[in-house]
């Protein structure tokens, strides 16, 4: 009866996958907030949230409900349309960015091959860079439309920072692409295999560059200049409240998850287990991402925020030449067919 559907199954499967991924990523955010607060508490020798429910797990439900029901204040001098559009863009782009991440191999399901990824395109890495550069617009719009000096400064700062570090991010990723010869993320994972083949052993400097640029790209401490409290109140989302405020948070945390997932895919062998016989689908991928998220939080607890001019000098005068040289070396090695 449904024979006519045969050539179009990929559309239906794709839509289902899209819904599942979007819901999963969005519902991971409150858990991540809880994890961060608990871990930060431990890092600072205090307890963190532990009153609501077992281990303080009820806190995440309480927080979500509070944010949903808070009054949303829009000041009269704001540019209303852009003010409402900005948080939507931030969340939308961060979810779309996650769609290129592969988190498992493909399986046969009723005659159809279903891959555990949103989209396995030939330009996976480029699509990631494109979508993450679109996310900047949400921040600039938020800063501009609030009609507030702090917001504007925060928005401009953050976009300048993201543009600067995107170069390093792209060039570092390019070194991996030169080695594997593919922009397809699933193929990059497949080439790595178990622990001996992980790219981090072959490209330790690239890993470091990518990770540092990734922290700056997600606006996390020690590069959280856009929301530097003592200078800018809260940066670009100073004027936001209620759910719109929390949507910026959501965007930041989803970006964090995506960045960890991308580091896993590019350098830590994706869904492959360290040794072959331990291979369990998805678990290893989630475990690696979880570990990297903890590293993100650990770094936030450890390093103080750096000054803005230092940040720019560090990005342009140190990281960029280094990543260019790094790419040049791997390009030469590839041309001599050593790697």
């Amino acid at each position: 009866m449904f024979d006519w559907l045969d050539p179009y199954w990929f559309l239906i499967i794709g839509s289902v996958k899209a819904v599942i991924i979007a819901v999963a990523v969005m519902s991971a955010v409150p858990a991540l907030v809880w994890l961060e607060r608990r871990l930060l508490g431990r890092f600072q020798v205090r307890l963190g949230p532990n009153r609501v429910g077992p281990l303080g797990l009820g806190q995440l439900i309480a927080d979500s409900i509070k944010l949903l029901f808070k009054e949303s204040i829009v000041q009269s001098s704001a540019d209303k349309f852009l003010f409402h559009l900005a948080p939507a863009i931030v969340v939308f782009t961060s979810i779309v960015t996650f769609s290129v991440i592969p988190f498992g191999t493909s399986y046969e399901l009723g005659g159809e091959t279903v891959g555990l990824w949103g989209a396995n395109t030939n330009i996976g890495l480029l699509l990631f860079l494109a979508m993450s550069s679109m996310g900047i617009y949400g921040i600039v719009m938020a800063g501009f439309s609030s009609n507030n000096k702090y917001s504007l400064m925060g928005g401009l700062r953050s976009s300048a920072q993201m543009i600067s570090y995107e170069l390093t991010l792209g060039l570092a990723a390019l070194a991996v692409v030169i080695m594997t010869g593919s922009l397809n993320l699933a193929e990059i994972v497949n080439q790595q295999g178990n622990i001996a083949g992980w790219n981090i052993w072959y490209q330790p400097l690239t890993f470091l560059l990518f990770f540092v640029a990734g922290i700056a790209e997600t606006n996390r401490a020690p590069f959280d200049l856009p929301e530097a409290e003592q200078e800018l109140v809260a940066g670009f989302f100073t004027e936001y409240s209620g759910m719109k405020f929390s949507m910026f948070f959501m965007g930041e945390y989803i970006n964090m998850i995506t960045m960890s997932a991308l580091v896993t895919v590019l350098f830590l062998g994706g869904w492959h287990a360290p040794v072959d016989f331990l291979d369990v689908p998805i678990i290893w991928f989630v475990g690696k991402v979880f570990f990297l998220l903890c590293v993100f939080i650990w770094i936030r607890a450890t390093f103080p925020r750096i000054r803005y001019d230092r940040l720019m000098a560090f990005g342009w005068k140190f990281l960029l030449p280094l990543s260019l040289g790094n790419m040049l070396i791997y390009g030469t090695l590839k041309a001599l067919s050593i790697i």
Binding site: L127, V140, F144
Partner: peptide
């Protein structure tokens, strides 16, 4: 796909953000 990604990265991502910068400043 490639041209689409390049279109977004170069024009929508890099060039237009500078436009917005200058207008906002």
């Amino acid at each position: 796909e490639f041209i689409a990604a390049v279109q977004v990265v170069v024009y929508a991502g890099a060039v237009m953000i500078l436009f917005l910068f200058i207008i906002a400043l």
